[in-house]
Structure formats: structure tokens, C-alpha cells
């Protein structure tokens, strides 16, 4: 199927790799495959697909993720 693309370089998502504990929950909850795991840490594999839903930041046990989520 066609992958939809929206505006680039607008997301407020940030990842603090130093804080990341590598639990992988961000990779599980993200509905757009923004995260992937490498060497026991998460990294932003596809940052431009982020829709700022906030699931990753809410579920991150280490508070390594930050995003301004919208409503709905």
C-alpha cells in the first residue's frame, strides 16, 4: 500500500539516548514505526512519520522521550 507522507521537520519529538533504558516499549506503541532498537537503545529511525500522539513519551519508564501531543 501507499505510504502517506505529511510535512517534514515539524515534529516536537525528542529522544534523550543517555536516559534510554532500552525496554523497547516505544517501538511497540508507536503506530508509525518511528523507533527501532540498536545496541540496547532506541533510536529515531523515521522521525518525519511522527504524528505526536504522545504514546511513546507517556509509556517511557525512563522519561527519555519528549513530545507535545495534540488532542484526538
Amino acid at each position: 500500500m501507499t505510504k502517506h507522507k505529511y510535512l517534514e521537520d515539524v515534529t516536537t519529538l525528542t529522544l534523550n539516548t543517555d536516559k534510554c533504558v532500552g525496554c523497547g516499549l516505544c517501538e511497540i506503541v508507536c503506530p508509525h514505526g518511528v523507533f527501532e532498537m540498536a545496541k540496547g537503545k532506541a533510536y529515531l529511525a523515521d522521525k518525519n512519520s511522527c504524528i505526536e500522539c504522545g504514546a511513546c513519551a507517556l509509556n517511557c519508564p525512563a522519561k527519555a522521550l519528549n513530545v507535545n501531543p495534540g488532542v484526538g
Binding site: Y6, T11, S49, I51, E52
Partner: peptide, 15 residues
């Protein structure tokens, strides 16, 4: 933009 599964609030604001 409010009904899709792939738009971000920051993107909509910018647009």
C-alpha cells in the same frame, strides 16, 4: 487533517 491517521498537530499548525 483532523481525520487522518498520519497528520501531526505541529504539521497542521504549520500548514
Amino acid at each position: 487533517t483532523g481525520s487522518t491517521t498520519y497528520t501531526s498537530p505541529s504539521g497542521v499548525k504549520e500548514e
